[in-house]
Nucleic acid binder design. Structure first.
Lengths: 152, 152
DNA sequence: GACGAAATGTTGCATATGCACTACAAAACG
DNA sequence: CGTTTTGTAGTGCATATGCAACATTTCGTC
């Protein structure tokens, strides 16, 4: 059969072990969990992530945030716009003209503290979903990703 | 210090163990690997994934594809459009009027076979990146995701 | 067969993601 | 110095993602 022959080839090969399809599925499912818990606070999983990175870096350019979070520079140009509009982050007074670093604002800090219980609940659900072994593996794999933001 | 106190709270908690930020980072990095390898064939990682799912299901509605791939129905409405436009998939003659199942076309099958080496190269790179333990964990976690597409 | 519940698909809306390209600014070099 | 190289940011383009709301179709039940 045409279909059988075809499926026994590349399709079954990918179906049985593709890391990309798996990581993307996991990402979608996990993201949905956090999205739902965070919804009441007016931000989504991605925005929560960026706020955390910015808070941790304590003042960083879009390029630095991108390196720390494995995102393209240009993604940050647009993704940060809603955070700026909401007042959760703010641009530091331009120190010349080159880069325009952003920091988390008081409102942003308050938001993170307010949403902390929601994050913990999502984290609990996600941990249960992936299991102890899965959770540890995810953390380990993430830590092993090639760092491009060596301490300045 | 204000910043220190703040960081010692929810920020460091999330930084040290958030499963969502990790899975999203992993997804971005892994997706980039496959995107680059597949680029010469005119499709991206996401589209490759959908083609594989459709090929495997062998004729499925957007809702079925969504359940199989953990995507929202409405995402498929739009994401399948480019695949239809390229002729990689086609809609089956409507069997009444309710759903409009799609199947992979000959051109789509040819594309998958042509791109197979590129996928294998990306898979090799990704496997090396996450390591044997990481790869197994990713597969296991993905398999454990709550299935909603029980065999019809 | 009629009715209400569940499933399917679309559109409006908002956001996420990254590539190619452009414009500047800054550092490195000779 | 000036020139080259590097780094930062933005825009145009295309796609991905999912929620809310809506229209339509099925299906289950009486």
């Amino acid at each position: 059969m045409d279909r059988r022959d075809f499926n026994s080839d590349i399709v079954s090969e990918v179906v049985s072990g593709c890391l990309m399809t798996r990581t993307r599925r996991i990402s979608r499912v996990i993201t949905n969990i956090y999205d739902q818990e965070l919804r009441d606070y007016g931000l989504n999983a991605s925005q929560f992530s960026m706020l955390i990175v910015i808070a941790k870096l304590g003042g960083a350019s879009r390029a630095e945030i991108g390196r720390a979070n494995f995102q393209d520079r240009t993604t940050l140009t647009r993704s940060l716009a809603p955070l700026l509009a909401e007042g959760w982050i703010q641009e530091l007074p331009t120190d010349g003209g080159r880069s325009r670093p952003v920091v988390i604002s008081d409102a942003g800090k308050k938001l993170l503290n307010d949403a902390a219980p929601a994050w913990r609940e999502a984290q609990r659900k996600a941990s249960q979903l992936v299991g102890d072994v899965g959770a540890k593996a995810i953390i380990d794999v993430a830590e092993s990703l090639p760092r491009v933001d060596e301490p300045k």
